Computed example of a mutant assay.
Amino acid sequence: MEMRDLRAQYIRYKKEIDSAVNKVLENANFIGGEEVNTLEKSLAEYVGVKHCISCANGTEAMSLVLMAWDIKEGDAVFVPDFTFFSTGEVVSFRNAVPIFVDVDKETFNMDADKLEAAILCTLREGRLMPKAVIPVDMFGLPAAHTEISRIAKKYNLLVLEDGAQGFGGSINGKKACGFGDAATTSFFPAKPLGCYGDGGAIFTNDDFLAQIINSLKVHGKGSNKYDNVRIGANSRLDTIQAAVLNVKLMAFKEYELDAVNRIYRIYNERLRNIVSTPVIPSGYESSFAQYTIKLESMEERILLQAKLKENSIPSAIYYIKPMHKQQAFSHLISKDVDYAVANELCDIVLSLPMHPYITEEDAEKITGTIAYSLTGRHRV
């Protein structure tokens, strides 16, 4: 059993994936080309934005946006305290300061009220200039983008949606990666839409921003790659990865998004009254990069993980520590009391296998093992 079964996915779409990759090999066009252009057009259409710019990975996608926005030393950028390290890391790349914001216990996403409190605190202190906020679509569930955008507009902040885990999710039909002034995603293999290596993309309706990012991703090119008008980076999506993603995007739209939501409903039905299961607010849809439960304590989590392992069921902890406790950010002044939810979540969350190819038998084994481990009886 796998946390995310990429083998089963490949077997199902082997003919299409092999054909797409072989076409690239036969044409020997490994950078750019038809496959990349097709992918960018398809992704922009799916999300519902004017521009999609592919790049090397999800971290560089965020970095390119912050470069284009000229985020710099003395600026403050607000990020959730409960997320993967790269969301804060990209702020430090620009010599700006990440300001960590606690999250909502039910959705795992940035708490909008605490965001506004953090902005006001930063303004009162006067050391940094608030410039941007990076809400994360945690575990596949879009953040509270309507409320966050309202707050950002109030304080004249740019919004960069980190949709690395959220691609495919939606709010009232509007797709993740379509919120904010710009959005990014990751095509890391384990993501809802993943390639067979690293890859990422940026989404925006801003024509000028798209133009700048297309320049920055290729060494700050002007009219061509030998006409360099700004300092940029080398951040392109390989053509083979684009070919794979073109097939996988078709599978994602036609089957996989519906399939993971079916597994979510099965899990929730079988685990209700046993553990705290994911909450999906009204009007929201998750793409379930992870299916994450909450236990009563760290001790209960340790015991459950051991029982799952005994039964050859994988599990994972996302995340073992909040951002404000990462050693790389130890130079920043943070009050632990301000992050009560993130601190607690890191002690009690546990992610279960979640992907479109989980069988009914596997779902029964997973939920039955949890029920028996925590209640001493089989699920009924």
Rank of each mutant, 00 (worst) to 15 (best):
G283Q: 02
L115K: 03
L120Y: 04
K294W: 01
G200M: 13
G197K: 15
L6Y: 10
P314T: 13
Y10I: 14
L66W: 05
A164L: 06
A28D: 09
I119H: 06
R301H: 05
A306K: 04
D70W: 07
I99D: 06
L345R: 12
I263Y: 08
K191R: 13
V97E: 15
T122Y: 03
P278R: 11
I151A: 08
S282A: 05
D113S: 09
P98M: 12
A112P: 06
G168A: 13
I71H: 01
L352V: 01
P135K: 06
L209P: 00
S235P: 00
I53T: 05
L25D: 09
Y226N: 04
S92A: 14
L245C: 11
D198A: 15
I71R: 11
N95S: 14
E299Y: 06
V24G: 06
S351R: 13
G163I: 03
T146V: 11
V229C: 09
V275H: 02
Y13L: 01
T239P: 00
N273W: 02
N246E: 07
D104A: 05
Q165K: 09
V247P: 05
K321M: 15
Q9D: 05
F188Q: 08
S373K: 01
F188S: 15
E296T: 01
K131I: 10
S276H: 02
S42K: 12
L249H: 09
I202H: 03
G199V: 14
T369H: 02
D137L: 06
S63D: 14
A289Q: 11
I280P: 13
K365V: 00
E35K: 12
